[in-house]
Amino acid sequence: MAKRTSYFPELKRNWWLKHPYFKKYMAREATVLPLVFFLLCLLAGLYSLLQGAESWQGWLTFMQSPLVIAVNALAFIASLFHAWTFFQLFPRVMPLRAGGRTLPPNLMVLGQWFGVVVVMVLAAWIFMRGL
Protein backbone atom coordinates (compact mmCIF):
# COMPACT_ATOMS: atom_id res chain seq x y z
CA MET A 1 0.00 0.00 0.00
CA ALA A 2 1.28 3.41 -0.93
CA LYS A 3 1.61 5.78 1.96
CA ARG A 4 -1.10 8.38 1.98
CA THR A 5 0.48 11.59 0.86
CA SER A 6 -2.54 13.88 0.56
CA TYR A 7 -2.55 16.94 2.78
CA PHE A 8 -4.86 16.89 5.78
CA PRO A 9 -4.86 20.23 7.59
CA GLU A 10 -5.16 19.72 11.32
CA LEU A 11 -8.35 21.17 12.77
CA LYS A 12 -7.67 23.28 15.83
CA ARG A 13 -10.03 23.36 18.81
CA ASN A 14 -10.96 26.99 18.18
CA TRP A 15 -11.85 26.53 14.49
CA TRP A 16 -15.40 27.75 15.08
CA LEU A 17 -14.22 31.17 16.30
CA LYS A 18 -12.98 32.03 12.84
CA HIS A 19 -16.26 32.69 11.04
CA PRO A 20 -19.57 34.21 12.20
CA TYR A 21 -21.48 31.29 10.63
CA PHE A 22 -19.55 28.75 12.74
CA LYS A 23 -20.03 30.91 15.85
CA LYS A 24 -23.78 30.86 15.26
CA TYR A 25 -23.60 27.08 14.81
CA MET A 26 -21.80 26.68 18.14
CA ALA A 27 -24.21 29.11 19.83
CA ARG A 28 -27.05 26.87 18.70
CA GLU A 29 -25.23 23.81 20.08
CA ALA A 30 -24.81 25.70 23.37
CA THR A 31 -28.56 26.42 23.70
CA VAL A 32 -28.89 23.05 25.41
CA LEU A 33 -26.61 24.03 28.34
CA PRO A 34 -29.11 26.37 30.10
CA LEU A 35 -31.83 23.91 28.99
CA VAL A 36 -30.13 21.15 30.99
CA PHE A 37 -30.06 23.48 34.01
CA PHE A 38 -33.83 24.07 33.70
CA LEU A 39 -34.48 20.32 33.31
CA LEU A 40 -32.41 19.58 36.45
CA CYS A 41 -34.51 22.25 38.26
CA LEU A 42 -37.68 20.41 37.17
CA LEU A 43 -36.29 17.06 38.36
CA ALA A 44 -35.38 18.60 41.73
CA GLY A 45 -38.93 20.03 41.88
CA LEU A 46 -40.45 16.59 41.16
CA TYR A 47 -38.52 14.96 44.00
CA SER A 48 -39.17 17.82 46.45
CA LEU A 49 -42.88 17.46 45.61
CA LEU A 50 -42.60 13.79 46.66
CA GLN A 51 -41.03 14.75 49.98
CA GLY A 52 -43.93 16.91 51.13
CA ALA A 53 -45.15 20.48 51.43
CA GLU A 54 -42.15 21.83 53.34
CA SER A 55 -39.64 20.49 50.82
CA TRP A 56 -41.80 21.85 47.96
CA GLN A 57 -41.79 25.30 49.59
CA GLY A 58 -38.00 25.07 49.74
CA TRP A 59 -37.89 24.36 46.00
CA LEU A 60 -40.18 27.35 45.27
CA THR A 61 -37.80 29.55 47.29
CA PHE A 62 -34.82 28.09 45.39
CA MET A 63 -36.53 28.98 42.09
CA GLN A 64 -36.88 32.60 43.33
CA SER A 65 -33.16 33.15 43.88
CA PRO A 66 -31.85 35.78 41.44
CA LEU A 67 -29.10 33.55 40.00
CA VAL A 68 -31.57 30.73 39.24
CA ILE A 69 -33.97 33.20 37.61
CA ALA A 70 -31.07 34.63 35.58
CA VAL A 71 -29.94 31.21 34.24
CA ASN A 72 -33.55 30.27 33.50
CA ALA A 73 -34.06 33.59 31.67
CA LEU A 74 -31.05 32.59 29.56
CA ALA A 75 -32.68 29.18 29.00
CA PHE A 76 -35.86 30.97 27.84
CA ILE A 77 -33.92 33.06 25.31
CA ALA A 78 -31.97 29.95 24.23
CA SER A 79 -35.22 28.03 23.66
CA LEU A 80 -36.54 30.84 21.42
CA PHE A 81 -33.23 30.97 19.50
CA HIS A 82 -33.37 27.21 19.08
CA ALA A 83 -36.99 27.49 17.89
CA TRP A 84 -36.00 30.16 15.37
CA THR A 85 -33.33 27.89 13.84
CA PHE A 86 -35.39 24.70 14.15
CA PHE A 87 -38.51 26.12 12.46
CA GLN A 88 -36.48 27.03 9.37
CA LEU A 89 -35.52 23.37 8.94
CA PHE A 90 -39.06 22.03 8.69
CA PRO A 91 -39.94 23.54 5.26
CA ARG A 92 -36.62 22.18 3.93
CA VAL A 93 -36.87 18.69 5.39
CA MET A 94 -40.57 18.21 4.75
CA PRO A 95 -42.02 20.68 2.19
CA LEU A 96 -45.81 20.56 2.43
CA ARG A 97 -47.92 20.69 -0.71
CA ALA A 98 -51.43 22.04 -0.82
CA GLY A 99 -53.56 22.22 -3.97
CA GLY A 100 -50.64 21.13 -6.18
CA ARG A 101 -48.41 23.93 -4.92
CA THR A 102 -45.65 23.90 -2.31
CA LEU A 103 -46.53 26.02 0.69
CA PRO A 104 -44.23 29.06 0.99
CA PRO A 105 -41.51 28.36 3.62
CA ASN A 106 -42.27 31.65 5.41
CA LEU A 107 -45.86 30.55 5.94
CA MET A 108 -44.69 27.26 7.49
CA VAL A 109 -42.27 29.08 9.81
CA LEU A 110 -45.07 31.46 10.81
CA GLY A 111 -47.40 28.51 11.44
CA GLN A 112 -44.88 27.00 13.86
CA TRP A 113 -44.53 30.30 15.77
CA PHE A 114 -48.33 30.34 15.97
CA GLY A 115 -48.02 26.91 17.63
CA VAL A 116 -45.62 28.35 20.24
CA VAL A 117 -48.11 31.14 21.02
CA VAL A 118 -51.00 28.65 21.31
CA VAL A 119 -48.97 26.56 23.78
CA MET A 120 -48.23 29.72 25.82
CA VAL A 121 -51.91 30.64 25.94
CA LEU A 122 -52.69 27.05 26.99
CA ALA A 123 -50.00 27.26 29.72
CA ALA A 124 -51.47 30.57 30.92
CA TRP A 125 -54.86 28.91 31.22
CA ILE A 126 -53.43 25.86 33.05
CA PHE A 127 -51.42 27.89 35.57
CA MET A 128 -53.82 30.81 36.10
CA ARG A 129 -57.25 29.18 36.15
CA GLY A 130 -59.07 29.54 39.42
CA LEU A 131 -56.62 32.09 40.81
Binding site: L60, N72, F87
Partner: peptide, 25 residues
Protein backbone atom coordinates in the same frame (compact mmCIF):
# COMPACT_ATOMS: atom_id res chain seq x y z
CA UNK B 1 -37.71 22.21 23.04
CA UNK B 2 -39.03 24.68 20.45
CA UNK B 3 -42.78 24.40 21.08
CA UNK B 4 -43.39 23.29 24.70
CA UNK B 5 -40.26 24.23 26.67
CA UNK B 6 -40.49 28.06 26.15
CA UNK B 7 -43.94 28.16 27.80
CA UNK B 8 -42.77 25.85 30.62
CA UNK B 9 -39.75 28.05 31.40
CA UNK B 10 -41.79 31.24 31.10
CA UNK B 11 -44.37 30.16 33.70
CA UNK B 12 -42.54 27.74 36.03
CA UNK B 13 -39.14 29.44 36.13
CA UNK B 14 -39.86 33.12 35.40
CA UNK B 15 -43.40 34.48 35.87
CA UNK B 16 -44.35 32.45 38.97
CA UNK B 17 -41.00 32.78 40.85
CA UNK B 18 -40.92 36.52 40.04
CA UNK B 19 -44.42 36.88 41.53
CA UNK B 20 -45.98 38.17 38.29
CA UNK B 21 -48.40 35.22 38.23
CA UNK B 22 -50.13 34.59 41.57
CA UNK B 23 -48.11 32.74 44.25
CA UNK B 24 -50.95 30.21 44.59
CA UNK B 25 -50.34 28.97 41.03
Amino acid sequence: FAVFVPAAILFIALLIPAGIVGPDA
